[in-house]
């Protein structure tokens, strides 16, 4: 019997596919998310839009909160650690969370090194804005990738940019001959073997979800049509006027992402979405997608 293998780490991500992972801050929200049909919840102290508004250092959640959430639901519970903060990750592993998100939404703890994820039994999901970043995280042991988007904005434009970038870069690799892949690996700043694998298989070696700015059922379905294998929704649900109804609609839209009739029906009468921010007005220095490298 072997535990903590890459097979079981990536295997859980495979089981989450086609589903919606919802940010929750307490047990009550976790129950609403499970009832809405979430395939997992992400436990965090404040949703990204509040982190953005409040400022200050954003850290791992209080373990007590995480335990409450674990007791409240039967679906997998994920939690965020700061980039490079391997002790927060050790604590989350000791709590037996099902996935650790080494997340740019929290304030980075190390400006050069991400967590060495091979040292852990618990699997990790990491954000990426392009193929090189995704492959660097995988080489450090990430078992799942999510495109970063721009968390806490309710604006899907960055999520679209990052998904299109990654799928475009994968298509480009697939068209190269073997000799060109060495240079491609150098340009991508990614390990050669992983670059070769992607070129041969036409996809990432692990599951890739979309995150950062999704707020409507149509946003979720668009990301699925663009090649996401599932979606994370953060502020988009619990910062909306009716989280239970919106959560359920986003779950149904993620399953039926190619069926406009279903999408029209589930999008109707949802009350207000979160307000949302224009990315240009934020200014480059306030973008959190550039945290991590």
């Amino acid at each position: 019997m072997k535990i903590g293998t890459m097979k079981v780490k990536t295997g859980l991500a495979e089981m989450l596919k086609g589903g919606v992972i919802m940010d929750v801050t307490d047990a009550e929200q976790a129950r609403v998310a499970e009832e809405a049909g979430a395939c997992a919840v992400m436990a965090l102290e404040r949703v990204p839009s509040d982190i953005r508004a409040d400022g200050g250092v954003a850290r791992m959640s209080d373990p007590e909160k995480i335990k409450e959430i674990q007791e409240a639901v039967s679906i997998p519970v994920m939690a965020k650690a700061r980039i490079g903060h391997f002790v927060e990750a050790q604590i989350l592993e000791a709590l037996e969370v099902d996935y650790v998100d080494e997340s740019e939404v929290l304030t980075p703890a190390d400006e050069s090194n991400h967590i060495n994820k091979w040292k852990f039994k618990v699997p990790f999901v990491c954000g990426a804005i392009n193929l090189g970043e995704a492959l660097r995280r995988i080489s450090e042991g990430a078992a799942m990738i999510r495109t970063k988007g721009e968390a806490g904005t309710g604006n899907v434009v960055e999520a679209v940019r990052h998904m299109r970038t990654i799928t475009g870069e994968i298509r480009k690799l697939a068209g190269m001959d073997e000799d060109e892949l060495f240079k491609a690996a150098k340009d991508l700043r990614a390990p050669c073997e992983l670059v070769k694998w992607v070129a041969e298989n036409g996809r990432l070696p692990v599951v890739n979800f979309s995150a950062g700015g999704l707020a409507t059922p149509a946003d979720a379905a668009m990301m699925m049509q663009l090649g996401a294998e599932g979606v994370f929704v953060g502020s988009g649900i619990f910062k909306s006027a009716d989280p239970a109804a919106r959560g359920k609609a986003i779950v149904e839209a993620t399953t039926h992402f190619n069926d406009p009739e279903v999408l029209a029906r589930v999008s109707a009468g949802l009350k207000d979405a979160m307000r949302g921010l224009d990315i240009k007005e934020l200014g480059e220095e306030n973008l959190i997608q550039h945290r991590g490298w």
Binding site: M1, K2, I3, G4, T5, K7, V8, G11, L12, S74, P76, E93, E96, V97, D98, Y99, K121, V122, P123
Partner: peptide, 14 residues
């Protein structure tokens, strides 16, 4: 019994 062997850190191959 769901999740009978435990949470993800106890997922295994055998």
């Amino acid at each position: 019994r769901r999740n009978a062997f435990g949470r993800q850190v106890r997922s295994f191959e055998a």
